[in-house]
Every structure is written in structure tokens, then in C-alpha cells.
Nucleic acid binder design. Structure first.
Lengths: 130, 130, 130, 130
DNA sequence: GTGGTCTAGACCACG
DNA sequence: GTGGTCTAGACCACC
């Protein structure tokens, strides 16, 4: 299953889904032209209301990540390859920037913050490889 | 003025205030025993509802950052340095972990991710020094 | 090819087809008695579901633009000129009325609104002639 | 009452509301900084579900027409005055363009189409003056 | 008081 | 089958 949801995370479900779609598109798991799973087919296993998924998909269409074809499944929008690396970097930057600011504001030494991040990167790789 | 507020930032105002107090405490601008500005003296120039400031102060008291002395202004609490360092590290880890996972899922090289983070740390320091 | 289709335009495909048939009839490209292309011969090159084309044809029969002859291809219907002119005028009025109200409500000078409309009429003519 | 809704018009309610807000902003009825009527206060007299109004407001925030301040009413966003005339023109153009294309496609004489529009502009002015 | 989110369930348009 | 829209009603965060 490409998607999962944590209802207790505080992050709105529709936003969790949007982030995962964007991540998968940026990571090449979802390629331009690929059909997205239908709202209903996602709704059942995730235990999420169809409207919530619809909302996420809708906003992604608005953003240009997905494309609508009336009556047919949504597809990943075309975007030139050069975009891909940029997108990835942009995604990651958006995710890291608040942490960097927090580190600065809390007076954590840059080197210590980097060490922590390095440790977490290794942990993520290890965890997924289980 | 020690504090400022951006209503359009998406971050709740009481949280912006809490962050700034923590920053100033961590950075030594506010030292243990210092008196906090009164709710009214902040409310007027910031254009913020007094209840919002009160909420921020209350939560900081609850966190142990501030101390209440009935009938007198709030003061910055005593704190032993070890505690603070641990808490800081924990907060930072919570903020960095999702970014690390995203980097892994998107297939970004760890070294590239670290470089980006380093850049953002420098940017945060530079920006705040303006 | 007399017809084309843009799935991403927001306009339903069957409606795009209907509009193009009406255009060609009004413009004399399709004359009364002319045979329409078969559903299959349109479906394949356009990449459109045959049911969609069938739907467009059916509605045009219902409107009296096309005529069905059992077992034979659809043909463009006979039409007396007066009828068509009235219907055209009525359709156009329905399309222009909301724009006129909007112009009034926004306080746009009638002369300015007319000038804009004139410009758009010229643009439409130029664009289609490409 | 600034807003009204026609549930039977075929146009989605949330879109009707968006159009009216945009029209009023473009027409200067709603000025930057003005507070929008609250979702609930609109919901009752219009007989429309709060979520529907919320959706319209939401999209307008996304478009930059409205601004969000957590816990407070939505306000009309700032936009420099030069924008205003442009916006009006753009609004009107978006509304007139399909009609112009329809006139062309139906083979209506430009002069006849203009005459019809002129008549409708006069009618709109007369009707509202009742 | 404000808006944001989610659920449950219905109906419609499109292919 | 697909997604789009709307309703009714609940809960939450923020000011």
C-alpha cells in the first residue's frame, strides 16, 4: 500500500495524504501518466471518509500535481524531468527549514544539530530496511 | 520591543509568543529571576488579545519556563542547565525525524540532505542577525 | 479531421463534440442531408469512449440538429432558417445576460463593456481562422 | 444582503459565492481590510450548509482574495489600487469570452451580437434601479 | 465568538 | 466505474 494515515498525529489527514503523494511523485514512485488509486479504493483500507481523500486529491489538482479527466481516474501530471530534482530539494527544504530555525532559536550548536540529523537519516534507512 | 507577532504566518499567535520567550531564555536575553512584561503592556502594542498572551504565559508556567508569584509579575524560572539541554535535544529530534524519513523515501543522498540542512542552519543564523 | 477534443478543458467531452457539430452546421461545413461520421470512426482517432460520442449524437438528434434513419448513418437534419436564428439568439442572450449583470454590478461603464465585447468577438473570429 | 444563491442554476453554490465575492471586491463594494460575514451568519439566511460557504471562503483564501487570521473573521486581502481596474476587466473578460466564442461559432453577426449585449446592459441597469 | 476538520450518507455528471 | 457537490451534525483550535 502506497499510503497510510495516522489519525492521532495532529496533522490533518488530507494534508498527510497530500504530503505522501508529493513525496512519491518527487521520489519517482509515481510517474507522470500513472493513474492514482481511486478515492473509494483508498477510502476502505485507510478507514478514511471518501470526502477527505477527495479533498486531498482536489488540492493536488489545484497545485498541478495531479490532472483531472472527467469520469476517469486522476493521473499524475506531466512535468519535465528537470523539475524532479528541484522538486525533491524544495520538498526537503520545506521540511527542514522549521527544524533549522528551531535549532538556531534554541541555541543548539550547528554541529550538534547536524550530528542529530545524520543519526536520524541513518535510523530512517535502517528502519525501512527491516 | 522584545516580542513581535505575525497573524498571517499560520502559526498560532500564542505559540509564536511561547517560542520567542523560550528563545530569549535559551539565548540568555531573559535570565532566571527577570520579570516578564505585563499582559497589558504587550497586548496594546502588539494588537493581540490579552487572553492570547495570558494563554501563552500560562502554558510557559506549566512548562516550568516561567514562575508565578501571586500578585506580582511573572518571572523567568530557575532552571538547571542539564534539563534544558535534554529537552532541547528532544524537541529538535521530533522536528527533524519526519524530514529524515522524507529524505530517505525520496531517495535523496544522505550527504546531500546534510548539506541542505547545514545551509539552512547558516541561513537561520544569518536571518535572525539582521 | 473535422473534430477534436481536449479532455483537460473542463468542458465535458460530449458537449465539446456537440458544440463542434453545431458550429459546422451553422457554418455550412455540414449541410442538411450530409452523413455524419460513424461513432467508431470517431472513437478510435479521438481516443474517446464510443458511448460518449453516442451520447453527443443522441442529444443532437433530440435537438433536431441531426436525424436518425434506422440502420443508416445519421444525417444532418433539414432546418428552416427562421427557427435556427431564433434559437441562436436565445442561446446567446442566456450566455450574455450574466455578463451584463456583472458589468453593471461592478460599475463598469456600458461603453467600456461593449468595447471589450467587440474586441472578444474579433478575437474569436481571428482565433478560429488560424 | 450582499449575497444570494440559486440552488437550481446548475452552477455549484460554492462557485456562485466565489463569483459574487470576486465581483464585489472588483467593484469596490468590499474593500481591503473589510471583514467578511461569518460563515454561520451567512449560512442561516441563505439556507446553505456552513461547509459549503467554508469551501468557497477557503478557495478564495487560496486565491489570495481573502486573508485568514486565526480565530478572527476573514478579511478582504490587501491589493494595490492598480489591480482593481485590471481585476474588473479580467473578471468581465472571463465572463464575456465564452459568449463571444459562441456568437462566432453560431455565425451570429458581430453587430447583432453587440446590439443584443447593449440591450442587456440597459436592462440590467433598469432592473436594479427598480 | 471565529474558522478547520472529519464523518456518514445522498445525489448528480461523466465515461 | 470515476470524481463533484451538498447536507447534517460533531469535535477541535484559536481569539
Amino acid at each position: 500500500m502506497l499510503f497510510y494515515v495516522d489519525p492521532g498525529s495532529g496533522v490533518p489527514i488530507f494534508r498527510q495524504l497530500m504530503d505522501q503523494v508529493r513525496t512519491h511523485v518527487a521520489g519517482g514512485v509515481l510517474k507522470p501518466g500513472d493513474e492514482m488509486p481511486s478515492i473509494r479504493s483508498l477510502s476502505v483500507p485507510l478507514g478514511v471518509n471518501p470526502m477527505t481523500i477527495s479533498k486531498a486529491y482536489n488540492l493536488l489538482v489545484h497545485e498541478g500535481v495531479l490532472e483531472r479527466r472527467p469520469g476517469l481516474p486522476l493521473v499524475v501530471a506531466e512535468h519535465d524531468a528537470g523539475d524532479l530534482a528541484d522538486r525533491r530539494r524544495e520538498q526537503l527544504r520545506a521540511s527542514l527549514a522549521p527544524a533549522a530555525q528551531m535549532a538556531y532559536r534554541m541555541g543548539v550548536e550547528p554541529l550538534e544539530a547536524e550530528a542529530l540529523f545524520r543519526e536520524l537519516l541513518a535510523a530512517a534507512a535502517a528502519e525501512e530496511d527491516e
